[in-house]
Design a protein around this nucleic acid. Structure first.
Lengths: 265, 265
DNA sequence: CGCTGTGAAGGTGTTCACAGCG
DNA sequence: CGCTGTGAACACCTTCACAGCG
């Protein structure tokens, strides 16, 4: 079964590395800020600092686009803004639909930096009939029934899913069937899509959990410990820790201890 | 100048790879779903499908945690839920503050899967005095003036920034000074933080731009082209394309063409 | 001389393929 | 016999360090 693949395996010899693509928007934002302050040129060092990356990485990234700098000087801000915009496809504009106009969907609809760079909210779609017609961010909400129609009429190829998790796959399927080939998913579900459709996910609770992991590690370091597994001590200090399914007495396979204490304070 | 570093350089020999950490929440979610359906065990193949990754990767990921499976059978669901929760630090709960209660902040406050797994919204903070006292998601909003007090009293170590971009760095500095060491940033800015503070960012427009890049590439492939730079044609078809800063006549350094046509239709 | 652009080296992450245990 | 756990190969990404151009 095809689990929602996100990127094709970097075919095409002259492809820009995925990691680089992911940073181009960052550079673009920094450059736009410079442009607004009428700064004419910028060095890799300065721009890298503004974008929060190191300068070698930035230079290598730009080298995939071409030789757009001037040695001994730096990069022409306007020129680079144009080149990156073009590379990202922001010189055309992309109609986008947002499906699921709850708290989050409304927040997205109101998000300014949205329309600013190449993206246009073509429609807001919600399953709740009571929402239909109500304007959010100046755009009237339309009912899910009209989804296919809207996608078709507006030539939408990018969809944003901000529905509850339970509805996400179904909405996704309809979007894809109607012709959408790129999806930004805010629902906490794994979406399954056919080949050729890109999915990116944004997931609050995943991000928080990653932070918690590092946070916990820091706390451990302070007291001279490595992590949750580093504390050796009397067994079963942890609350309701499930026993191993069929554990023999000598069965201790975890990297350090099986059932570590999770310090309450 | 220290640009906001996010991870320490993978010190500590028995560290779990960052990429693995980032997937643990995914596994956890899939396992939780299985647990709710009272599924007792699961194979790497099944679980991988549910989490949207391949099974070899999943097995390797789990191998960093320890040998928690049973050969010929699979993994005990409950046991694995516990082990991953523990590894992620979700067996303790983390008080979190959300700063900036606009559309997005409200959406985050209302987000359910939040409280469910180890995270507790300790406070909502906003700079607008008119918001003070108003309850959002059942929690009264407090004014920014009280930020330090709130952090201290509640022992908050994780902060979520959902303010406008302009306020983000300032809020960040105050959070960090008050003792927060992990930040989830929704504002479209690069945050600079001292060493030892983790920042993760969630950025809608970056995600959209990445999708646009791939989308454009797809469109190019359909018509037998690679990307924006592949179209050879009469110069200056593109609107307002800035000329190269100090270009000599033979100056053509881009990978294919300097000023490509961006097809309007 | 200063800065870009880039080979080369070193890391990190992924995938393969199979040994080995239950 | 089936499935986990893992060495080894591979692919990708980052960083270094410096050649070379303006």
């Amino acid at each position: 079964m095809a689990t929602g693949r996100t990127h094709r395996p970097a075919t095409r010899s002259r492809g820009i590395p995925e990691a680089t693509v992911a940073r181009l928007p960052l550079y673009l934002r920094a450059l736009t800020a410079l442009s607004e302050r009428s700064v004419p040129t910028v060095s890799s060092e300065e721009l890298a600092a503004a974008a929060g990356v190191n300068s070698a990485k930035l230079r290598k990234d730009f080298s995939y686009l071409g030789s757009y700098g001037t040695r001994g000087v730096g990069y022409d801000v306007e020129y680079l803004v144009y080149q990156i915009s073009r590379e990202l496809g922001l010189t055309q504009d992309w109609p986008v639909v947002i499906v699921g106009i709850g708290n989050l969907g409304a927040a997205l609809a109101n998000y300014g930096g949205f329309a600013s760079r190449g993206f246009r909210v073509a429609a807001l779609i919600d399953a709740d009939p009571a929402m239909a017609g109500k304007p959010v961010a100046g755009i009237p909400v339309q009912h899910t029934d009209e989804l296919e129609q809207i996608i078709g009429d507006n030539g939408v190829s990018i969809g944003v899913i901000a529905t509850p998790a339970g509805a996400a796959q179904q909405v996704c399927d309809r979007l894809v069937a109607a012709g959408v080939t790129s999806i930004l998913n805010f629902a906490p579900t794994v979406l399954t899509v056919p080949d050729g459709v890109d999915v990116r996910k944004v997931d609050l609770s995943i991000e928080l959990q990653i932070l918690a992991f590092h946070e916990q590690r820091k706390a451990g370091e302070e007291t001279g410990q490595v992590g949750p597994e580093a504390m050796e001590g009397p067994e079963d200090t942890a609350p309701a820790s499930p026993a191993r399914p069929t554990a023999t007495a000598t069965d201790r396979k975890g990297p350090d201890g099986d059932v570590p204490a999770v310090m309450p304070a």
